[in-house]
């Protein structure tokens, strides 16, 4: 009996593990990059990692160490505009505005209509306004000086990616929560009146939106995850007509100087591809720029103009912590950084 009790107590003592020491985060950020890790929904474990280029040290809880609180549930987008970083947190239905140079919180904006979460997804900017797509069917307009929401613009269901071209805002209406009856339109919003002026049909389940040097709008219509494949379409900036659907699979994209890096992940074969695309000539320069054999699940890509490197985000199996994998601009693997759960966005510092 005595033995049982002492074992029981011993066990309780042994179970109190020591916590490992966190790497120090610099007061002022430079020569490195921030990674937004989405986390897993319902677990409040979205995080931001800071990676120091010099010594490759990773601070896995950058947001927490700067702000003494957690980022929240499912961070979906992170962008720099002006001197600020904007982090869109979907599950927590909040927008975190941070000081660019330090990562310290300037304001947390809770996005609700009454008690109903707006569920923000993505953010883009124009002039002194930020536009945030919200899953409840609206785009919120934020004044980047006063950091308050000044207007809501109604679009269609479950808007995702957005981009600005020629004084207009283009918003992809995914309708993802009506699966399989998804949406297939792109809302066009006049940025002088903040009114939707048109809807363009681009293909089923549109997601990411990007604009090229000429102002043409590229949208990824993700199809139905089955017979209807995920493809990129181009909308003419002037006449707002869908001019082309490209014949290669595409899921996401990022700018690399004047070109696009286009990513694709095949769910059934679990293979990844990073393509190089020239939007001026509208030709695919390389359909496999990177040897992706080191990547388990390609979850995003970014190009760093400061050091001319490509960074691929590897979500592993979605439930294990992910990696940022660095390649030369020619696509040669260089190194990996171990970051948080489901890394999806990256911001570079000179």
């Amino acid at each position: 009996m005595r033995y049982v009790i002492s074992l029981f107590l011993l066990v309780l003592v042994v179970s109190c593990h020591k916590e490992p020491i966190e790497t120090v985060v610099p007061e002022s950020l430079s020569n490195g990059f921030l990674v937004l890790n989405e986390g897993l929904f319902q677990q409040n474990n979205s995080s931001i990692s800071w990676v120091d280029n010099q010594n490759a040290a990773v601070n896995a809880d950058f947001f927490l160490s700067k702000n003494n609180r957690l980022l929240g549930d499912t961070g979906n987008d992170m962008q720099i505009y002006g001197g600020k970083i904007y982090v869109v947190v979907n599950g927590s239905s909040s927008l975190e505005v941070l000081e660019k140079s330090t990562g310290k919180s300037l304001k947390q904006i809770n996005m609700f209509v009454g008690n109903t979460a707006k569920s923000p997804r993505s953010i883009t900017f124009h002039g002194n306004k930020a536009f945030i797509s919200c899953y409840d069917g609206f785009v919120d307009v934020l004044d980047t000086t006063s950091l308050s929401i000044v207007q809501r613009i109604q679009v269609a269901s479950n808007p995702e990616g957005l981009a600005v071209s020629n004084g207009k805002l283009f918003v992809a209406n995914s309708g993802g929560l009506n699966f399989p009856n998804v949406d297939s339109t792109l809302s066009v919003i006049d940025l002088t009146t903040y009114q939707e002026i048109q809807k363009i049909t681009v293909g089923k389940n549109p997601g990411s939106v990007i604009v090229d040097q000429e102002g043409d709008i590229y949208v990824i219509a993700r199809g139905n995850y089955g017979s209807n494949p995920s493809r990129m379409v181009r909308v003419n900036a002037i006449n707002l007509v869908v001019e082309e659907q490209f014949p290669f699979d595409a899921l996401g994209f990022a700018r690399m100087n004047d070109n696009f890096l286009i990513t694709f992940y095949n769910y059934s074969t679990q293979s990844s591809a990073v393509r190089l695309f020239d939007p001026l000539s509208e030709t695919l320069l390389n359909s496999n720029l990177i040897n992706t054999s080191d990547i388990q699940t390609l979850y995003g890509v970014s190009y760093n103009p400061h050091n001319d490197k490509i960074y691929c985000l590897d979500a592993m199996n979605f439930t294990n912590t992910g990696y940022v994998r660095r390649y030369s601009s020619q696509g040669v693997y260089e190194t990996s950084y171990h970051v948080g759960l489901n890394p999806s966005k990256i911001l570079f510092y000179e």
């Binding site: 319902q42 929240g72 549930d73 599950g91 927590s92 809770n110 609700f112």
Partner: peptide, 10 residues
């Protein structure tokens, strides 16, 4: 009630 979601406990 679901999980307690930080900043969105509804």
């Amino acid at each position: 009630p679901g999980a307690v979601i930080l900043y969105n406990d509804h």
